[in-house]
């Protein structure tokens, strides 16, 4: 992980309330793996905390290394980020966290993403594109206005099921239910998921109910202080242990049974 001033190359809306920002890294940075995140300054003096945002895509062309993040306008901090202009510099530490890693034997992969949780799933697809993995993606949005990157899921997955809460785009369903309905026919070797806590809880309950013991890795969200593992602000409980894990350093990706969700 490195502290650097990244330079904005692109920053604009891609769906209702969702912005995409692409920036260049001034220093050669290793380990920008899928499922890791950046902790980025929102660029004004009033907000002392940085915002943790998943790496959505990374790119290396000649000497230019770039990272793309996609963020939802939620509160004052992400609003401030959306006002940053091309050419502006923002302070950022990256890459952070452990990320999603697929083992060689894990060929059939189910991806489940809801809301802003779809962006780490995009990073997985891009990272493993052309490595012989077989992806089945189950992606949920609130409504048609929130839909973005559907083409990435369609083009890089063997099959992509895109659903919305209100049925205004694709079927009216949620990502977890869509996945569970197809589980028997797909039989994935591994499941990767990211989304709001209620979605991850539903997934955990669904797997348990059906006795599905396939390894399942989820990316968690928690409010952060330092973002690098020093302050113990961002913890979650380890299942069955009197012990906490740090979401920023030990995670954000955990085996679904390893932590309380």
């Amino acid at each position: 992980m490195r502290e650097q001033k990244v330079k904005i190359l692109e920053n604009g809306p891609i769906a209702a309330g969702i912005y995409k920002m692409r920036f260049a890294l001034p220093e050669k940075t290793d380990g920008l793996f899928c499922g890791k995140f950046v902790n980025i300054s929102v660029g004004d003096g009033a907000h002392l905390l940085r915002r943790p945002i998943a790496i959505c895509e990374r790119c290396e062309e000649n000497d230019l290394q770039t990272v793309t993040i996609c963020y939802q306008l939620k509160g004052a901090g992400t609003q401030a980020m959306s006002r940053a202009k091309v050419g502006d510099e923002l302070a950022c530490v990256l890459p952070l966290g452990n990320g999603f890693r697929l083992e060689e034997g894990q060929r059939r992969v189910a991806l489940i993403g809801g809301g802003v949780g779809i962006f780490p799933m995009v990073s997985v697809l891009k990272e493993y594109a052309g490595t012989g993995k077989d992806f089945n993606s189950y992606i949920g949005f609130r409504n048609r206005d929130a839909v973005c990157m559907a083409d990435v899921f369609s083009s890089l997955s063997a099959r992509a099921e895109i659903v919305t809460d209100d049925g205004s785009f694709g079927k009216k369903n949620n990502a977890v239910a869509a996945f569970l309905a197809e589980y028997e026919s797909v039989k994935p070797d591994v499941i990767l998921a990211c989304g709001p806590t209620p979605m991850l809880r539903a997934l955990k309950a669904g797997l348990k109910e059906r006795g599905i013991a396939v390894p399942c890795y989820v990316s968690l969200e928690e409010r952060m202080g330092c973002g690098i593992g020093a302050c113990l602000v961002c913890v979650c409980k380890k299942s069955g242990k009197e012990e906490n894990a740090r979401v920023c350093k030990d995670g954000p990706v955990f085996e679904i049974n390893e932590v309380e969700i």
């Binding site: 009033a46 002392l48 905390l49 901090g77 409010r223 202080g225 113990l232 602000v233 913890v235 906490n244």
Partner: peptide, 24 residues
């Protein structure tokens, strides 16, 4: 010590608030 439940942090204008609760 395990400390307090989360969220343990929030922001105000030019300040933050924390309640980690001595996890150590």
């Amino acid at each position: 010590r395990l400390g307090n439940p989360t969220p343990r942090i929030a922001e105000g204008y030019g300040v933050i608030l924390n309640a980690v609760g001595l996890q150590n």
